[in-house]
């Protein structure tokens, strides 16, 4: 067996979902006995069979990846309850194996996945999706890139045709529930952890928490980092659309149109909204100069 063949075989076995009781499955999808498959490349020792030796890696893999995703979504865990959350994470990881050298990115598609699978969330589906989106926005805001914001002199020179790049760590969210208090309550009770180490991992459960009651109401949030702390800032719908359009690279004039499209708002009110929005955005350092793409010489 070549090195590549061995690695392909072992990776497939290590990533195969566990059976009940965190045990390795005894039969593969095509009916092969795992005992025979493990023995084909792993030697037994007096204490452990080939199957049992492989099982150590199979279990470690799942503990590690489930642990990594769970750390990023403690509030989804709190909303769904441990049993449903474990089922969700497992289903997600079966479809989304890690394609990055860093565990940091492993949960990136979980909010999308949850949205596509309401059956995994039960009656708190919409709330759970909102919480997942906010928790992933937190991850992006926490360690996303920060650009140098526009200076006061640069801001003084902006006009209708100006385009901006918004801070790469800024995330704009439209949510069906005001979930930020819930997420904050859970995060306060969750210790900060590291992403990676080489040690073997054991699983630990989440702490018991009393969650704030939630009533359905559309809210708009800007999730951003300021002085290395992540903040959730409530913004109005017009500011949400304005910033969203700027984020897409549209000019200031185009973005203003997008902010009030389909709305009957007086010119005075429009001016006030835009002024407030841009003042906050510039104070918080969200407005940056567009990056010039590097072209090969």
């Amino acid at each position: 067996m070549s090195l590549l063949e061995l690695q392909r075989r072992m990776a497939e076995d290590v990533r195969r979902p566990l059976a009940a009781g965190f045990a390795m499955q005894t039969v593969t999808e095509d009916g092969t006995l795992m005992e025979e498959r493990a023995a084909s490349y792993i030697t037994p020792n007096p204490q452990l069979s080939s199957f049992e030796r492989l099982e150590i890696y199979n279990r470690q893999y799942w503990f590690r990846v489930i642990g990594a995703v769970s750390e990023d979504f403690p509030a989804v865990n709190a909303v769904l309850g441990e049993r449903r959350f474990d089922a969700l994470v497992l289903a997600y990881l079966k479809e989304h194996a890690s394609i990055s050298w860093t565990l940091r990115d492993l949960g990136a598609k979980l909010p999308e996945f949850l949205e596509e699978h309401p059956e995994l969330a039960g009656r708190r589906y919409r709330l759970a999706v909102d919480v997942a989106r906010l928790e992933w926005a937190y991850v992006d805001a926490f360690d996303g890139e920060r650009l140098e914001p526009l200076s006061l002199a640069e801001l003084a020179g902006i006009g209708p045709e100006s385009r901006f790049e918004l801070q790469p760590h800024l995330r704009l969210l439209e949510l069906s529930y005001p979930v930020e208090d819930l997420v904050l309550a859970v995060r306060r009770g969750t210790p900060e952890t590291e992403m990676s180490s080489s040690a073997s991992q054991e699983r630990s459960g989440p702490a018991e928490l009393r969650l704030p009651a939630m009533r359905r109401r559309t809210v708009y949030l800007a999730v951003h980092r300021y002085d290395d702390q992540v903040y959730y800032r409530r913004i109005g719908p017009e500011a949400f659309r304005l910033l969203g359009a700027l984020q897409e690279g549209r000019t200031l004039a185009e973005s203003l149109t997008a902010a009030f499209v389909g709305k009957t708002v007086s010119a005075g009110r429009q001016a006030q909204v835009v002024q407030e929005c841009l003042a906050h955005a510039s104070q918080l350092g969200w407005l940056c100069a567009p990056r010039v793409e590097e072209r090969p010489a």
Partner: peptide
């Protein structure tokens, strides 16, 4: 970093998996 392997075909295990102690593995 570690004398191990951990990913194949773009899929990562995030584990430090042991190598077979072969001359092919030495060269690679």
């Amino acid at each position: 970093d570690h004398l191990c392997w951990g990913s194949v075909d773009g899929r990562y295990t995030h584990d430090l998996l042991p190598l077979p102690y072969t001359f092919e593995a030495v060269r690679n």
